[in-house]
Computed example of a mutant assay.
Amino acid sequence: MKIFLINLFFIGAILLSSCKKEISKSTNTPANPNSFTLKKDGVSYSPNYIFVSQVDEDALAVETYMVYQQAENNTYGLFVKRSIVPGTYVSEAGGSEYFSMIHIQDSSNYFGWENSTLTVLSNDTVTKVLHCTFEVLLYNDDCDGSCPQITDGEMTIHY
């Protein structure tokens, strides 16, 4: 009886797996609802990959980069409090409980942030949409007073 049931199971599995599955092809690819732009030392940056994740109860991580583009000046990461309320947040000396940023310039140059201004325009915790602008002075130990400046930063993220 066991052998009969096992054979019946395998025959059913073979029949089901050999059925032709019709895949619908759609030309309408859903757009990423997130947006992110900035200027690094005056050069515009607008990634085609924006990933938002909730890393703990009250922290959001935003990862951006340009897929299939040069590796240099391509990657930014931001952390922002999920519960942040609209307003302007100014941080100095790399310390903030609301916002931080990292930038990978190339394989040997990584930047944190020194000073920043974050303006939260809206944060709808019901629909889970955050819209803000930011300016950041990036920093690492090797930039000797010529650290990159991020201006005109703006993002709208869905979390």
Rank of each mutant, 00 (worst) to 15 (best):
I14E: 07
V85L: 13
I14S: 09
I84Q: 02
S26H: 14
G42P: 05
G153S: 08
S83Q: 13
D144H: 11
T75F: 10
S83T: 10
L8Y: 02
G95I: 12
S100V: 00
N109V: 07
L15N: 02
L60F: 03
T151Q: 05
S35F: 03
L8V: 01
Y159Q: 04
L121S: 03
G12N: 13
K81P: 00
Y68W: 10
Q105T: 00
S91G: 15
T125S: 10
E92N: 14
P86N: 03
D124Y: 08
F10Q: 02
Y68S: 15
S35Q: 11
D144N: 15
T119H: 04
D41P: 06
D56A: 12
T64K: 03
S146K: 13
C19K: 15
N123F: 00
N140L: 12
C143L: 08
D58K: 08
L137M: 12
S35T: 12
L8S: 07
I23V: 15
N73K: 11
D144W: 02
N123S: 05
M101D: 00
A71C: 09
N34A: 02
T127F: 05
I3P: 00
F134D: 06
T156H: 02
F4V: 02
V90C: 05
G153Q: 09
A61I: 00
N7R: 04
Q70G: 13
T88V: 11
G77Y: 01
Q54M: 08
V55Q: 09
I23Y: 14
F4Q: 01
S44H: 07
T64R: 06
R82G: 05
S116F: 07
S35R: 06
M101E: 03
K2E: 06
I14H: 03
K25A: 08
D141S: 14
K39Y: 02
Q69R: 14
E22W: 10
T125F: 05
Y98P: 00
S18I: 11
F9S: 01
Q105H: 11
A93G: 11
L16S: 14
M155Q: 01
P86W: 08
K81N: 05
Y45S: 10
I3A: 08
L15K: 06
L121P: 01
I157W: 00
V55G: 14
